[in-house]
Design a protein around this nucleic acid. Structure first.
Lengths: 222, 222
DNA sequence: TCGATTTTGTGAAAGGGTTCCCAAACTCTT
DNA sequence: AAGAGTTTGGGAACCCTTTCACAAAATCGA
C-alpha cells in the first residue's frame, strides 16, 4: 500500500516550472486569493494556461472544474512534491562578491532554502562574517555536511577552483550542486548539477539584439 | 548580394550553447590547441559530440573531415554570430548585494560584456562606488542608454521594484533584459527577457534530492 | 430541475530537439 | 598510389514538450 504517492515520473520541463507556480501561489495567497483558475495562475507565473493545466495534471487532479484550484491547498501540494516541507540547508563555497551576496540574500527563507554555512579556502576570509554567517574553512566541509545534513552545495568561486571544489563537495557527500563558475564541471553520474552562467545569458541576449540590429539596418538600407 | 551571411534561423537551443562553445574554444586556444575535434570540444563544453556537430552545422561548414575545427577561426566565427566583435555595454539596475557583485565581476570582459553603468533608486546608495563604478540615479537611465548605446539591462532589485524598473528600462529604449528578481515581468513582445532565479534552481535540485531520498528509504524499507 | 456558463483534465496533433548512424572527405602510413 | 584510420555533415528516427481542442464536471440563475 502506497501512502505517499509522489507521482513517479514528472517531466523535467514541468519540474522546472513548479517553483514558479509555488512562488505565484504564495503571492496570490498573501493577497487573499483563495481560488484561482489556470488562466490566473498562468499570468502570475508568466506562462500560458494550457501548460499550467498539463503540468498540474502530472501531480494529480487537484482542481475543480468550473471553479479552479484552491490556492493554499495546491501550494502545499507542490511544496510537498519538491520536498519543501522543511527548508533545505545549503552550503555556499566561496565568500567573494557573489558568495557574499548569496549569503546575504533575504529571499531564500520564503522559498524553502536555508544557508547552513559559508566556506572558503582563503585564510584571509576565514573568520570574517558575510550575511550573518561566519566564514568557515573549506576543510570543515565534511563535518558541516554531516552535522547539518546538507545536501545542496553552491559553488561561487573563480573558475580555476571550481572543479576541485566540486570534488570536495562530492567527497563530503553532497549530491546536488549549483555552479556559478563558468566551467564545465566533471561530476559522477549520480550527482545532480545545474549551471548558472550570467555572461552566457547576456551573450544569448546579445545574439538576439545583434539580429534585431541587423534586421533594422537592412530595412533602412532597403 | 548578401555580404554578411548571418545564418537566418539558428535554433534557440543552439544559440543557448554558443556561449559555452566560445568559452571552451577560448580556453583551448589559451592552452595552445590549434585544432580540435567535435569530441574534444564537447568534453570542454560539457555536452556530447553529436550535438556539437549539429550545432556548428547550423552556422555553416567550418570543420575539416578527418581533422576537426580550427580553434581560433571557429571562435572568431561564433563571436561574430553572437555579435561579440565589440563588447556589449550593459546597465545594472540595483546596487545591493547582487548588483554590487555583478558590477565587481571580473569575468565579464573576457566574455564580451562591459558594465556601462550601475544605477539605483536609493538616495543613500547614489554616489557610492561599487566595483569601480559610481552609482548613478535611476532617473539618469535614458541619458545613459543613449550616451553609451546600451542595449542590455540587468535587473538586480527586490521583486517589488522589478516591474517598474523593467518599465523604465523599456521606456529608456532597452530591448534586452536579464532579470534576477523572482517575479514574472510583463514586457512588450519586442523586448527579449531572460530570467535567473537562484531559489528556483535550488528547488529544482531539491526535487531530485527529495526523490533520491525517497527511493533510498524505500530500498531500506523493502 | 434545466439550461447556460465556466473551467478542468486529457487525448491528439504539431513542433523542436537530440541521438543514431553512415557516406563523404580528409590525413597518414606504407 | 592505395588502403587504413579519422572525423565531419546531415538525413532519419526517436523522444520530449507544447499547443490545440473538447468532453466531463462543476456552479449559478431562473
Amino acid at each position: 500500500m502506497t501512502i505517499l504517492r509522489s507521482p513517479a515520473g514528472i517531466p523535467d520541463a514541468t519540474v522546472a516550472r513548479l517553483p514558479l507556480y509555488l512562488r505565484a501561489l504564495d503571492e496570490l495567497a498573501e493577497r487573499g486569493t483563495d481560488v484561482c483558475s489556470s488562466e490566473h495562475l498562468a499570468t502570475a507565473a508568466g506562462v500560458n494556461s494550457a501548460i499550467v493545466r498539463k503540468d498540474l495534471s502530472h501531480l494529480g487532479s487537484y482542481g475543480t472544474r468550473g471553479v479552479g484550484y484552491d490556492v493554499r491547498f495546491l501550494a502545499g501540494h507542490i511544496a510537498a512534491v519538491v520536498g519543501q516541507t522543511q527548508p533545505w540547508p545549503v552550503v555556499i563555497v566561496g565568500a567573494g562578491h557573489l558568495g557574499s551576496a548569496l549569503a546575504a540574500y533575504q529571499g531564500f527563507g520564503a522559498r524553502g532554502v536555508k544557508v547552513a554555512a559559508v566556506v572558503d579556502a582563503d585564510p584571509e576570509l576565514i573568520g570574517t562574517t558575510v550575511g550573518g554567517h561566519e566564514v568557515l574553512s573549506i576543510d570543515d566541509l565534511p563535518g558541516i555536511v554531516v552535522r547539518d545534513e546538507v545536501s545542496l552545495g553552491i559553488i561561487a568561486t573563480p573558475p580555476a577552483a571550481a572543479q576541485s571544489v566540486a570534488d570536495a563537495l562530492v567527497a563530503a557527500g553532497i549530491s546536488s550542486i549549483l555552479n556559478f563558475a563558468p566551467t564545465a564541471l566533471q561530476v559522477p553520474a549520480e550527482v545532480d548539477l545545474r549551471q548558472v552562467d550570467v555572461a552566457a545569458e547576456l551573450q544569448i541576449l546579445g545574439y538576439h539584439a545583434h539580429r534585431r540590429q541587423a534586421a533594422t539596418s537592412k530595412e533602412v538600407t532597403a
